[in-house]
Every structure is written in structure tokens, then in C-alpha cells.
Amino acid sequence: MIKITNLHKYFGELHVLKGIDLEVKQGDVIAIIGPSGSGKSTMLHCINRLEEPSKGHIFIDNEDIMNPACDINTVRQKVGMVFQHFNLFPHKNVLENIILAPTLVKKISKEESCNTAYELLAKVGLSDKASSYPNKLSGGQKQRIAIARALAMKPEVILFDEPTSALDPEMIKEVLDVMKDLAKEGMTMLIVTHEMGFARNVANRLIFMDNGLIVEDTEPNTFFNAPKSDRAKEFLDKVLNK
């Protein structure tokens, strides 16, 4: 459902992505790991063109989003995104945060959007927070609302950009649990993460990136037990404190 071919990204002189090829199938849960500066987040941001790719093609449902005729706003309705810093809208309450895009972009009636929103709030375990403002929520709660907000657009795939990196340790689990449920339901997910346990237990594919390239694309267990490249071995040694 997503196909990336020869994706390059430059920031001025800096060559951040050096030819990414990747195919994502329906239902894939892909953990993307690698050292910082390896281009993981940039790649994710290119998939919905929040970052303009410099070269290459990205097909979403066979539509090339690099084609000038492509309406990126329509594509983005199918591609949800969850950010490291949540990015909830502080001047809107939780319910408004969730129904804003469905009502304004998809033109779904307010009543129907609210019903969906309450279902989603129940799903992320925050039914009692519908009328709270984001500044009254903890980090973990904010991120669960952000996931509900993304789900409200009924996306085909959700991009997670380090969803737990800005959280206090005791709040990481509540967010990962929600993501685990999503994975079980068959949601297609691309997750840039530093949570190795999560990558190993929940993802069905693991991508290791280094220096703007995908170095390994394999099963999580294979990767953790027997990484092929030296670079991956070195990385695992560091993050697993071996």
C-alpha cells in the first residue's frame, strides 16, 4: 500500500536520505530503529510530505504523491501521524481536538464525529477527559488523545514518530499498550522508536537505518538475535548495554 523508490532528501548541502526503497503491505507493523541522525524521522515525514522529498517516488495506494497533480491533503486523510511532542491543539478541548479534522476536512456531521470520538476515547481509556483541555493532561494521556485524533480520520496507515520519547518512564507503557491493541486489530503502522522491547514483541518487521540508508529489513527476532551488518551489531551493543 506504500511503495517508496529511490527517495532522497537534502537539507541544503546535507544529504539526509540517500536512496530509500521500501514497500509496506497492508497490516505491516514496522519498527524503524537506528542511531540518531540516520534519517528515520525524515523518512517518516517524507511519506506524508510534511518534509518535501528532494528526489524519488512515493506511492500510496498506487498514487504517486510526488506527482504535482496529486492532492496531498486527500492523501494525508489516509495517512495518520502521531508526533513525539503530541502536538495537540491547546486552544481546543479533547473532544474538539478529535472531531476537528473529521468535521472540517471530511465533512462528517458533528453528531457522527462525536460518536466516533467517544468510542475512540473509550478505546484509549480516557472517556472522562472529553471536555478537558490538553494542558490538564499528563504526557501519556496527551499521546493517547493524539492517537485517538489520528484514528478519528479512519486512516489506512499511521506513522508514529518516536511516540514515547518525550514521556516519563512510567507513562510509556500506557501508550505502548494502545499501540499494541492497534497492531492486533491489523492497523498498518510505521513506528520510529527507541523501545527495543516493543520493536521485538509487537512489530512484524524491523528496519534498521544508518546514515540515510536502510541497512537491514528483516524479522525483529532475526535482527536482535543475529544482526547481519557490523553497524547493526555495534548499535545493538550500545542500546542493549551488552
Binding site: 501521524m81 491543539f89 476536512v105
Partner: peptide, 22 residues
């Protein structure tokens, strides 16, 4: 925060709509 515009655009809102509502 730059993330506000990003979040709005990621939800499929146009530039104008994001400016107006967010």
C-alpha cells in the same frame, strides 16, 4: 510551536484552513 502547523497539515487540513482554525 512548529508542531501545530505540522499536526494540522498531517490531518489533511489545507494551509488556509490550518491558519484559520489552528
Amino acid at each position: 510551536d512548529k508542531g501545530q502547523m505540522e499536526a494540522a497539515r498531517a490531518l489533511g487540513m489545507s494551509y488556509g484552513l490550518s491558519m484559520r482554525v489552528i
